[in-house]
């Protein structure tokens, strides 16, 4: 499973993506990432699974792409 980071989150993770396997759902992934990258705990971000925003805990499958995105600031 590919995890993508965007915007200021890359300042925290120091990489735009990483591969993680065997994570059951988005809540577990969040926990895992916030433990690995502690400043994520206070960062504002949304999660998208395969390009679709998810609000609630979502089951993850092999091959999914999960994006962690801070508030948008285009234009």
């Amino acid at each position: 499973m590919e995890i993508l980071f965007f915007g200021n989150l890359i300042d925290i993770t120091r990489q735009p993506k990483e591969l993680i396997e065997g994570v059951a759902d988005t809540a577990t992934l969040k926990q895992l990432l916030e433990k690995k990258y502690q400043p994520l705990q206070t960062a504002k971000y949304f999660i998208a699974v395969n390009g679709k925003m998810v609000q609630e805990n979502t089951i993850l499958n092999q091959g999914d792409t999960v994006a962690l995105m801070p508030p948008f600031s285009g234009g």
Partner: peptide, 18 residues
């Protein structure tokens, strides 16, 4: 999902907010 990073004249950066 677009992000803007403001580059200042002292080369510091600030993430833009809408």
């Amino acid at each position: 999902p677009i992000w803007g990073k403001e580059i200042l004249n002292n080369q510091n950066t600030v993430w833009k907010e809408n």
